[in-house]
Computed example of a mutant assay.
Amino acid sequence: MQTEIYSGRSGRRVADTQQDAYHAMTVKELSAKQRMVLDAFEHGRPPMTREDIAAVTNLKLSSVCGRVRELLDAGRLAVVGSRKDLATQTSQQLLAVVPKAAA
């Protein structure tokens, strides 16, 4: 059974066919910056914040935020928790790659 995914922007359920089509995409079909964000999670890295991803990829935080939103909407990344930033005392989302469903 596949988990239902809802779009963060529209709030509507993402159709199974949309999910299947997205997960069928190869890494070549992702944009270069989306690929960089996903590659930041390689080698068993623990969940990261957007700022962590920006530091690992050397991308601007604003660019990382946009690519993370696209990957969250597409079901490639998921929010798995949060942590408090000690400098700003704000809560930051922890992100992780969503494993592909077994076929």
Rank of each mutant, 00 (worst) to 15 (best):
residue 32 A to F: 09
residue 61 L to M: 08
residue 71 L to T: 10
residue 59 L to G: 14
residue 13 R to I: 14
residue 85 D to C: 15
residue 10 S to I: 06
residue 38 L to K: 05
residue 74 A to N: 12
residue 63 S to I: 13
residue 87 A to P: 00
residue 15 A to V: 02
residue 6 Y to C: 02
residue 97 V to G: 03
residue 32 A to R: 05
residue 26 T to P: 00
residue 91 S to E: 14
residue 89 Q to M: 11
residue 10 S to W: 01
residue 41 F to T: 06
residue 80 V to H: 02
residue 20 D to I: 13
residue 88 T to C: 04
residue 8 G to P: 00
residue 38 L to N: 01
residue 21 A to I: 00
residue 72 L to T: 07
residue 21 A to S: 10
residue 22 Y to D: 12
residue 57 T to F: 07
residue 79 V to C: 07
residue 10 S to A: 04
residue 20 D to A: 15
residue 95 L to S: 13
residue 74 A to L: 08
residue 83 R to A: 07
residue 55 A to H: 03
residue 49 T to Y: 03
residue 10 S to N: 11
residue 42 E to M: 08
residue 93 Q to Y: 06
residue 57 T to N: 04
residue 72 L to I: 05
residue 79 V to N: 08
residue 80 V to I: 07
residue 47 P to Y: 07
residue 33 K to H: 09
residue 57 T to S: 09
residue 88 T to V: 01
residue 53 I to G: 04
residue 70 E to K: 10
residue 79 V to E: 15
residue 51 E to A: 15
residue 54 A to L: 06
residue 64 V to H: 12
residue 15 A to M: 02
residue 65 C to I: 07
residue 9 R to K: 13
residue 12 R to L: 14
residue 43 H to G: 10
residue 82 S to T: 07
residue 8 G to W: 02
residue 86 L to V: 09
residue 77 L to K: 08
residue 13 R to F: 05
residue 9 R to Y: 10
residue 34 Q to T: 01
residue 33 K to S: 13
residue 62 S to M: 11
residue 89 Q to W: 04
residue 27 V to Q: 07
residue 50 R to G: 12
residue 59 L to T: 06
residue 83 R to F: 00
residue 96 A to F: 06
residue 84 K to L: 10
residue 57 T to K: 05
residue 43 H to K: 14
residue 17 T to S: 07
residue 6 Y to W: 03
residue 38 L to A: 00
residue 50 R to V: 09
residue 85 D to H: 15
residue 36 M to C: 05
residue 78 A to Q: 13
residue 15 A to G: 04
residue 40 A to T: 08
residue 14 V to C: 02
residue 87 A to L: 10
residue 48 M to Q: 14
residue 51 E to H: 10
